[in-house]
Every structure is written in C-alpha cells, then in structure tokens.
Amino acid sequence: MARVRYFAAAAEATGLDVEERPEATLGALRRAVASDHPGLGGILPRCAVLVGGARVGDETPLGSDDLVDVLPPFAGG
C-alpha cells in the first residue's frame, strides 16, 4: 500500500497526517481520498500531489513503497 502524507489544510481536512492506501494508480487514489474525506474534496484540485517527490500523471501506478505527499497551496511573505 502507498503511504499518503497530508500537510497543512489537507491534514486539517482529513484529520490525519498520514495513512496507508490500497489504490493502484494516482488517479484512483485522488478519487478515493476525496470520497473518503469529503472535506478534502474542495481543496484537492488545488493541491500539489507528489509521488516520490515528483509531479506525475493520474495514470501513474502506485506500489507498496511509494510515498505520496498532498500539499495544499501555501501563502507566505
């Protein structure tokens, strides 16, 4: 299972910092976490979702060793 880490507003929306997910592709993972965590659905389209530290497409397969980071937009000055 892929390990998903949530940061900032994504962590607040899910109530989690990390979880293990069984989905086989990044697209399936995006759909599943939006369904499982309704509060995340509104911000997920604006989030950077990285697999192994890189932006990849929804067709990307996920393996048991993959680390997926969900990073909402950050504001700063």
Rank of each mutant, 00 (worst) to 15 (best):
P61M: 08
R46W: 08
D17P: 06
V51P: 07
V56H: 02
G52E: 12
P22I: 09
P38Y: 05
H37P: 05
L67K: 00
G27N: 10
R31G: 00
L26N: 06
P72D: 10
G63L: 11
E20A: 15
L44I: 04
A24N: 00
V33F: 01
D36F: 02
A32N: 11
A13D: 01
S64H: 09
D66Y: 06
L71W: 01
S64T: 11
L67E: 15
E19S: 15
D17F: 10
L26S: 10
E20C: 13
G63T: 14
E19N: 12
E59M: 08
G39H: 06
P72A: 12
P45N: 14
D36V: 01
R55M: 15
V70I: 02
T25Q: 13
A11T: 02
G42M: 06
V51W: 04
V18Y: 02
V56Q: 11
G52N: 11
G27E: 05
G39A: 10
D36L: 07
A34V: 03
L44R: 06
V56T: 15
E59D: 15
D58K: 08
E19T: 15
G53E: 10
A32M: 09
V70C: 01
A48L: 14
D17Y: 04
L62I: 07
R31D: 07
A13Y: 02
G53N: 13
E19K: 14
V18Q: 14
T60I: 12
F74C: 00
V18G: 05
L29M: 07
V49E: 08
P45M: 10
L26H: 13
E20N: 14
E12K: 11
T25R: 12
V18K: 11
R55D: 11
P72I: 07
D69Q: 14
F74Y: 03
P38D: 04
L40Q: 10
D65F: 10
D36C: 05
V49Y: 04
E19G: 13
A10E: 01
I43W: 07
L71D: 04
L40Y: 07
S35N: 07
G63K: 13
G39R: 06
G53L: 08
L26K: 14
L67W: 01
G53Y: 04
L26M: 11
F74S: 03
V33W: 02
S64N: 12
R30K: 15
D69G: 09
